[in-house]
Design a protein around this nucleic acid. Structure first.
Length: 665
DNA sequence: GTAGGGTTAG
């Protein structure tokens, strides 16, 4: 600041003094100095405007100004500087021209770049490469390829610009084809840039074969590889399911940077090895390498999927301590985490703190409200979003439609479904169809559902058929249930849920021969029912219960408490619902089975282990059954507790005898 | 002196 003031005041004084050749020279130097200082102070607009007071700026000054425009990504000011060179009859050398080209492509001025490129009497490799990279990065791949094919000679840079362009726009096959072509050219050798792009392409298409080929090649070339190539390689193995191989590479790396750590952690979670992922994250925090937005987002999303809110909260605390970018997807991952864990209040608080909330966070919040039995909040929020001028996308509508499903708002849901195409100009996705079938089937509007299925533009997927089957279960529609089950057996014959639901539908109708046949089919195909499992966290300790589990140390207390509850529940009018069992057993036995469902055990344990009034939060791996759902309503009223059950599909919040899902689930 | 690569959500 001080130096600027000095330079400025001395030159202003100079303007008022008499010109001499010497003073003019010195004046010129000082004016340039002012521009430099303005640039340093990030007062770029003033610097560019000041340029008009300089008669013939030096190439150095132009070069610095162009670099500053590039740095600020200001196309407008960049154009002004360029125009100034023309106006002052300055003929830029190839160096300045290349800088201009680079500035233009980075600021999105591809047309300016192309016309400058066409005007240039002399072009070197750098000029061509800058253009190719510019087109490629912005997704104009055909244009990039055209230049690449036209250019008189190529170096590694040219190959990589074209290859990485394909990679970053998900055209991985073409990237790998070009990589192969390059290897066939005797004059070109792959380097670390081309190799890391090629590895990323192989990883993206999950081709272990191509990846191994490249791996073999990079071992043979004896290049001194850096952490970027190693991370690309470990990501390849991780993405292709060879997690241990990836870990081997990770362990051998000398310099592990934040990307290698993040990649490794991410692959652990993706493979379902959450303990490995979390312990690696802990190691990272102790390693001195600073986690970035990608790391946070990866860990938080894993916590959200596994519904481990406590660990997510710890990560959140850590993020606050070390600082994170509130505009990044780390912030939206926080919204996602709290929404998924049933904590819409915190989710909303985090959301409100985001300076520029994005569509992903909005969608997470809508889905969160929908899953937590607050469909009105979900829909109000969506309407708010529309009014703010934000354009929803296909996934936002999945949230909106599922909110309608959870609330039983059939006609409103249909209205939204039609608006996707008619009002918002978006395409219907398979998920939209699954949602709308869910909506119709639950309310027993099977004719309309079938009509949509028979006329939809794509093949119905497993989610759609499973929704239909679920609706058939509620309304006892055996004929349509058989159609849905048949389709599901074709798509995923190994899923036990289909057999069980179908058997329950038959059992409900008293069709015991058919129940036996489904059981037989299951047995013959070696399909085992996934055991129901519930867990509850008490004092930072997780307690897991299986169906009829007697292994917990407090089992006798739990059973005693359930016995007492049972009497009180029956007094209040509870009738055990015994229809939804797979086997044809004696009534009394059925009741016993149901009474010992895992979520009831977990809830009972929660109640006897916490002081009166404490809310109970239980997680279940499967959907909650009808009887448990009814029982929870009674229990919440008798013990005067808020009971939250998060099943595989949504949250149920039981309070004083009723559930937030209003019996739609 | 000017151009480039790997992790990426709902």
């Amino acid at each position: 600041m001080a130096s600027f003031r000095r330079a400025f005041s001395s030159s202003s004084q100079f303007l008022n003094t008499k010109d001499t050749t010497l003073s003019r020279l010195s004046e010129h130097r000082k004016l340039e100095e002012i521009v430099d200082v303005l640039c340093q102070q990030k007062r770029l607009k003033e610097a560019v405007d000041f340029l008009h007071r300089i008669h013939q700026p030096s190439p150095r000054l132009y070069s610095n100004l162009i670099a500053a425009c590039l740095h600020h990504r200001s196309l407008e000011l960049g154009r002004k500087v360029h125009a100034h060179t023309k106006a002052s009859n300055f003929i830029p050398g190839i160096f300045i021209s290349n800088r201009l080209l680079h500035m233009y492509v980075k600021c999105g001025g591809l047309i300016d770049a192309q016309s400058l490129f066409d005007e240039m009497s002399q072009k070197d490799l750098c000029s061509w490469n800058t253009m190719i990279a510019g087109y490629a990065n912005l997704g104009h791949l055909e244009q990039a390829r055209k230049l690449f094919d036209e250019m008189p000679q190529r170096d590694n840079f040219s190959w990589n610009a074209a290859i990485s362009g394909y990679v970053s726009h998900h055209r991985h096959r073409e990237a790998l084809d070009l990589f192969r072509t390059m290897q066939e050219h005797e004059s070109s050798n792959s380097n670390m840039f081309t190799l890391s792009s090629a590895l990323a392409a192989a990883a993206a298409i999950r081709s272990l074969r191509l990846g191994k080929e490249i791996h073999g090649y990079l071992v043979r070339t004896e290049l001194n590889l850096d952490e970027v190539v190693w991370s690309a390689l470990l990501d390849l193995y991780g993405k292709c399911g060879s997690l241990d191989e990836a870990r081997g590479i990770f362990d051998q790396m000398v310099d592990r940077d934040v990307v290698s750590w993040t990649t490794m952690i991410h692959r652990y979670f993706e493979d379902g090895r959450k303990e490995g992922g979390l312990s690696l994250f802990r190691n990272l925090m102790g390693s001195g390498v600073r986690p970035n937005e990608y790391t946070f987002a990866g860990v938080l999303n894993a916590c959200a999927d596994l519904a481990i809110e406590r660990i997510g909260k710890e990560v959140h605390g850590y993020m606050i301590r070390v600082g994170y970018n509130p505009c990044s997807f780390a912030a939206s991952a926080l919204v996602h985490l709290y929404s998924k864990c049933g904590n819409t209040e915190i989710a909303r608080r985090v959301f409100n703190k985001m300076p520029r909330p994005d569509l992903v966070s909005c969608t997470s919040l809508i889905v969160g409200y929908a899953q937590n039995g607050q469909p009105d909040m979900a829909l109000n929020f969506f309407e708010l979003l529309l009014r703010s001028g934000t354009k929803p996308d296909e996934i936002t509508f999945v949230g909106v439609l599922s909110a309608c499903t959870h609330a039983g708002l059939v006609d409103k849901g249909l209205e939204y479904f039609h608006s996707v195409k008619e009002k918002h100009g978006l395409m219907h996705t398979a998920d939209h169809y699954a949602c709308v079938i869910d909506l119709l089937a639950r309310s027993g509007r099977f004719k309309e559902a079938e009509n949509i299925i028979d006329n939809m533009p794509m093949k119905p997927d497993k989610f759609l058929w499973a929704s239909l089957l679920g609706g058939c279960r509620i309304h006892g529609n055996i004929e349509l249930a058989e159609r849905a089950a048949k389709a599901l057996f074709e798509i995923e014959p190994e899923n036990p849920a289909t057999y069980i639901t179908l058997a329950n539908i038959y059992a409900n109708a008293g069709l015991w021969t058919k129940v036996a046949k489904v059981r037989k089919d299951m047995e013959n195909r070696g399909i085992v029912k996934k055991p129901g499992k519930s867990w509850i966290e008490i004092k930072r300790q997780v307690h897991v219960f299986l169906v009829g589990d007697k292994s917990h140390p407090k089992t006798s207390d739990i059973h005693e408490f359930l016995g007492e509850l049972s009497t009180k529940m029956k007094e209040e009018g509870y009738v055990p619902d015994t229809n939804f069992v797979l086997h044809d057993v004696e009534e009394e036995q059925k009741e016993q089975n149901l009474f010992y469902h895992s979520e009831k055990l977990a809830v009972a344990f929660g109640i006897i282990s916490t002081p009166p009034g404490t809310p109970i939060k239980v997680f279940k791996n499967l959907r909650t059954c009808v009887d448990c759902h009814t029982a929870m309503k009674y229990i919440s009223k008798i013990v005067q507790r808020k009971i939250i059950v998060r099943d595989s599909n949504r949250f149920h919040c039981f309070e004083d005898g009723s559930c937030s899902c209003r019996d739609y689930w």
